[in-house]
């Protein structure tokens, strides 16, 4: 074995919410313990023998979760909310899909339409052409004790869903936008106007087509001329909401809708906790209310239902925050959101 002792060290300082933490020591295991002192993989918490006890919930996942493909690759999961093919999924992951396809139970649906998106919750409503799906049954409340079992999508084949199990692991709460919401532009430092010097690659500003040299004139109709005025306008805004930007390009006044993103999510740097967290969700903060659990699945299990042992939907998985924390939208909020999105014209 080789050990690297850790020193207390500050984590990523560009985040307001980054806590200064002592990173756990990374230890590479080279030698193996004697066989009788090591539990076989099948009997570990994520092992097939343990997960076989969750077959009742697995059958619900089989019918009520959707697998959303990008071509042939599983991209994310979804929650079936109507017999006629309405499915909720994670909007920011959906946006990166080039060739959208959906599987529910054993059936493949090559056509899917995006009907509506809620940027605040990062949820999209999609529709497939179906008539006899089994929608999730909602649990009466998300206010269950910590330590309560929950079940979510695990890996999948074309026809068979597997599950992962874990527990509710912390208090229901808001996850504020990490590092604050931002446009994703760098402004020229010494200029008299708010001239854009650079547009961040992964940002709402990039999506909205802003360019170097554009001059920002107003945000949501409020004229801005100085950097701190921009800060003041955006201070209480949440990630996922839209800022209407008025700007000047080549003597011409234009406007664009810019999706605000968490400052942290635009950053390319990883702090030590992120570095040990595998594939976490890019959008993992700025949620009005979340239920936290400890299911450590692939990033692609996000978007699917979170079930209680009765097989009822207690939430919708919305982010894998890091290796120890997963977030779900609580059932109360999920129901309201589903109703609202279904009414979208």
């Amino acid at each position: 074995m080789s050990c690297v002792p850790a020193n207390p060290s500050p984590s990523n300082l560009n985040s307001v919410h980054a806590k200064l933490i002592i990173p756990a020591i990374i230890l590479a295991i080279v030698a193996h313990a004697p066989a009788d002192q090591s539990l076989e993989t099948a009997f570990r918490t994520t092992g097939p023998t343990v997960l076989a006890a969750f077959d009742a919930q697995r059958q619900v996942i089989q019918k009520c979760s959707a697998i959303i493909y990008d071509g042939r690759a599983e991209a994310i999961c979804g929650v079936v909310i109507s017999p006629t093919g309405h499915i909720l999924t994670k909007a920011s992951e959906l946006k990166t899909i080039k060739k959208l396809g959906v599987t529910v139970d054993e059936k493949k649906y090559p056509e899917a339409k995006i009907l509506a998106i809620d940027d605040q919750w990062d949820v999209a409503l999609i529709k497939i052409d179906a008539s006899d799906l089994t929608p999730v049954a909602y649990a009466p409340t998300s206010a269950v004790s910590q330590g309560t079992w929950v079940v979510a999508n695990g890996t999948t084949t074309r026809t068979h869903r597997r599950v992962l199990a874990g527990i509710i692991s912390a208090k229901i709460r808001e996850i504020p936008t990490s590092g604050g919401a931002a446009l994703g532009v760098k402004l020229k430092l010494d200029a008299k106007e708010l001239e854009i010097d650079d547009v961040q690659e992964k940002s709402g500003a990039k999506e909205a087509g802003l360019q170097k040299g554009d001059v920002i004139l107003a945000i949501d109709g409020k004229p801005v001329t100085k950097l701190d005025e921009v800060g003041a306008v955006l201070k209480d805004r949440k990630a996922g909401t839209i800022a209407k930007l008025t700007f000047r390009r080549n003597q011409e006044e234009k406007s664009a809708d810019v999706r605000l993103m968490a400052r942290n999510e635009m950053s390319e740097e990883l702090n030590r906790n992120d570095a040990m967290s595998g594939a976490f969700s890019e959008r993992r903060s700025g949620f009005p209310r979340i239920l936290q659990h400890d299911i450590l699945g692939a990033r692609s299990i996000v978007g699917g239902p979170l079930l209680d042992l009765e097989g009822r939907c207690i939430g919708m998985n919305i982010a894998r925050a890091n290796r120890a924390e997963s977030f779900a939208i609580p059932v109360e909020d999920l129901k309201a959101l589903a109703e609202r999105l279904l009414k979208t014209p």
Partner: peptide, 27 residues
Amino acid sequence: SVVRLGRLVRMAESTIQSDCTLIGGDS
């Protein structure tokens, strides 16, 4: 504080191993 459930998966004299997932700050 965050609770995680798991099993004891390895035992040795000076170390025990579980599948409760830890991260920096849990130390």
